[in-house]
C-alpha cells in the first residue's frame, strides 16, 4: 500500500528504522492475539466436537458429532437459527429503508455544518452504551411505558399494545442499536457518486425519483450491500437486545448459548451453538469485505 521509497527514481538507502525489519513492533500484539484470542477460540471450537458431559468444562478428547446432531435434530434449535436469521434480515431491511435517506442527506447536503452535526449525532448514538439506550426504549415501549400510557390517555386503545417482550420489541431494539452502522456504511458510498451525473439527468428532464431509482441507488449498491451485511452480522450476534427487549420470550442463538452454559452447564453443546453462530456471522462478514472491496474499486 505505502510505497516506502516515495516513488523516487533512485531508491535511497533506507534508514534502519524504515527497513522491513520492524517485526519487534508487532510481536507483542501478535502474542497477545495468539494467546488470548486464537488459542481460546480454537479450543472452544474443538470442544464442540467433544463428547457432551454436563458440568464438565475441561477438554476430554472424545470425538463425537453428538452436539451438532442435537442442534439439527431438535426443532427448538433450528427454530432458533431461523429466528435469528429472520430477525437479522428484517432488521437489515428496516435499517436500510430508514437509514438511506439520512445517509443521503449527510452525504449530499451543501451546508457543511449540517453534515458535521448529523454525523456527530450518529457517531455518538452509536458509541453510547447499548444498555443505556435500551433503558430508554424500555421506558418508552413497555406496557406502562410512555407510548402505551399516552395512547390509553388519548382513548385510542383501552388495552396496552404489545410493543415489548416480543419480536416487535426485539426488532425495534436491534434497529436502534445497528442503524448507525448502516448510515455510516452508506455515507461513503453515496458521497463517491459524482453529483454531476444526477444533475445531468435532472437537467435532461428526469424526475427526482427517476434519478434516484436509476442513478443514485444503483451506484450506491456497494455501500448498501456492505451496510446490510454488517447490520445482519451484528443483529444475529446480539445477546443483550433479545434478552432485554424480548424478555426471554424471543429465543435467539446467543440466548441459547448463554442458557445452555449458565443455566444447564452444557459446555460442549454451548460451544457447538457458538461455533454455528460464528460461522453464520463470519459468512456475512466475508461477503461484507467483498462488498467493501467493490465499493473501493468501483469509485467514479
Amino acid at each position: 500500500m505505502t510505497d516506502l521509497t516515495g516513488g523516487s527514481p533512485t531508491p535511497r538507502q533506507r534508514p534502519s528504522w524504515l527497513s522491513p525489519n520492524l517485526w519487534w513492533l508487532v510481536i507483542p500484539a501478535i502474542l497477545f492475539i495468539l494467546l488470548f484470542f486464537l488459542i481460546p477460540v480454537l479450543s472452544l471450537f474443538a470442544s464442540s466436537f467433544d463428547k457432551a458431559m454436563p458440568g464438565q468444562i475441561t477438554f476430554q478428547g472424545n470425538f463425537s458429532w453428538n452436539n451438532y446432531e442435537r442442534i439439527f435434530s431438535r426443532s427448538l434449535y433450528y427454530t432458533a437459527i431461523w429466528r435469528s436469521v429472520w430477525l437479522g434480515a428484517t432488521v437489515a431491511g428496516v435499517c436500510l429503508v430508514i437509514g438511506y435517506p439520512l445517509a443521503f442527506i449527510i452525504a449530499r447536503t451543501f451546508r457543511a455544518g449540517t453534515a458535521t452535526l448529523l454525523t456527530i449525532l450518529v457517531l455518538s448514538s452509536m458509541q453510547l452504551d447499548m444498555v443505556i439506550r435500551l433503558y430508554g426504549l424500555m421506558v418508552l415501549m413497555g406496557d406502562k411505558g410512555l407510548i402505551n400510557t399516552g395512547l390509553i390517555a388519548l382513548g385510542i386503545t383501552s388495552e396496552p399494545l404489545p410493543l415489548m417482550y416480543n419480536e416487535v420489541g426485539v426488532i425495534v431494539g436491534l434497529v436502534q442499536v445497528t442503524l448507525p452502522f448502516m448510515v455510516l456504511s452508506l455515507i461513503g458510498s453515496i458521497r463517491s457518486i459524482n453529483p454531476a451525473l444526477e444533475e445531468a439527468a435532472r437537467s435532461l428532464g428526469s424526475s427526482r425519483w427517476h434519478v434516484m431509482r436509476t442513478i443514485t441507488w444503483p451506484l450506491s449498491l456497494p455501500g448498501i450491500y456492505a451496510g446490510t451485511l454488517l447490520v445482519f452480522a451484528l443483529a444475529i450476534s446480539s445477546y443483550v437486545v433479545p434478552a432485554l427487549m424480548g424478555g426471554w420470550k424471543v429465543i435467539t442463538l446467543p440466548i441459547h448459548i448463554y442458557q445452555q452454559i449458565a443455566e444447564v452447564g452444557r459446555w460442549q453443546f454451548g460451544a457447538a451453538v457458538a461455533t454455528l453462530l460464528f460461522l453464520t456471522s463470519l459468512f456475512a462478514m466475508a461477503l461484507y469485505v467483498v462488498a467493501l472491496r467493490r465499493n473501493a474499486g468501483g469509485r467514479v
Binding site: 429503508v97 430508514i98 437509514g99 438511506y100 435517506p101 439520512l102 443521503f104 442527506i105 449530499r108 447536503t109 448529523l118 449525532l121 450518529v122 448514538s125 453510547l128 443505556i132 439506550r133 435500551l134 433503558y135 430508554g136 426504549l137 421506558v139 418508552l140 410512555l146 425495534v172 434497529v175 436502534q176 442503524l179 448507525p180 448510515v183 453529483p195 444526477e198 444533475e199 435532472r202 437537467s203 427526482r208 425519483w209 434516484m212
Partner: peptide
C-alpha cells in the same frame, strides 16, 4: 437541481428520532 426529496427529509427525521429519543428518555427519567 439536486434538492433532497421531501419524503427523504421525513424518513431521516424518523431515523434520527429512533437514534436519539431513547437517549433523551434516559435523561428525562
Amino acid at each position: 437541481i439536486n434538492p433532497i426529496p421531501f419524503t427523504f427529509r421525513i424518513i431521516a427525521v424518523v431515523a434520527l428520532m429512533v437514534l436519539l429519543v431513547p437517549v433523551l428518555i434516559v435523561v428525562l427519567a
